[in-house]
Amino acid sequence: MKSNKVFERAVHGIFLILGLVTVACVLLITVYLVISGIPAILEIGLLDFLFGMIWDPAASNPQYGILPFILSSIYGTVGSLVIGVPVGFFTAVYLSKKASPKVKEWMGAAVSLLAGIPSVVYGLVGMMVLVPGIREVFHLPDGASLLAAMIVLAIMILPSIIKVSITALDAVPKEYEDASLALGATPEETWFRVSVPAAKSGIATAVVLGVGRAIGEAMAVMMVSGNVANMPKLFESVRFLTTAVSSGMGYADGLYREALFSIALVLFLFIMLINATLNFFLKGEKK
């Protein structure tokens, strides 16, 4: 009987350890990023690093300012939201409220496909269709630009926005809508003036998830944005925080390599900020 108890305790302990693996991973990643990211920031100086406008690690007098990357990432994300959120939002309302079950099923499958397409495929199609298209339409020497990145990111965040918004809109109590309809509001008025406000924290969650996905995307952006460390302009080639890390990792060494880790740390802090916002909205939803 006693050995049985010992056995049960041991099993409990094993499962506890398995449960703590995720926590350990988060700690490990955080510690590694901070430890490897801090030295270069100290050497370059925090202000020069974050607000320096020139990134030129190969020069004889190397400069490590990452403001162009930070701004490109922010502009790119905001741009993708401006394009993607309206499309995603109205599609979600349509699918949740108006579409017939059959349409909903088929378009749901289409959205899932959109979510599952690998980012390099988006990058490839962007390279072959979008970049030449932008070059032709705006008469530019090269179409690889911030605009191309914004459009690709807008398409990539579409599925998360649509799916999470649909979940929120589906969860709106039917009584709210019935009451509004009984008072004489048309279906459209009910959806946009009753259901949408009732689902607003869920829709906000969807947008924040989109922000997270857009700011963290590397490969697709790398393939369509031209990857030059310019200050962001709509029609010029830019480099994001993510692409700065991935394009330098292959060959960088010394302070250059350490600076890449610092960029990753900055990106990580951005993501943590987004996670905190996400939790804030999720908590609001639970209440």
Partner: peptide, 30 residues
């Protein structure tokens, strides 16, 4: 099945959420 401590559960779930929010490029670097 096992966890009784609410704070521990919250911590593990928060860690899992954090992990799913980290972009793949950071995983690559790590």
């Amino acid at each position: 099945e096992y966890a009784t401590n609410k704070r521990l559960v919250g911590m593990i779930e928060y860690a899992a959420e954090t992990l799913s929010g980290i972009p793949s490029i950071i995983y690559g670097l790590f």
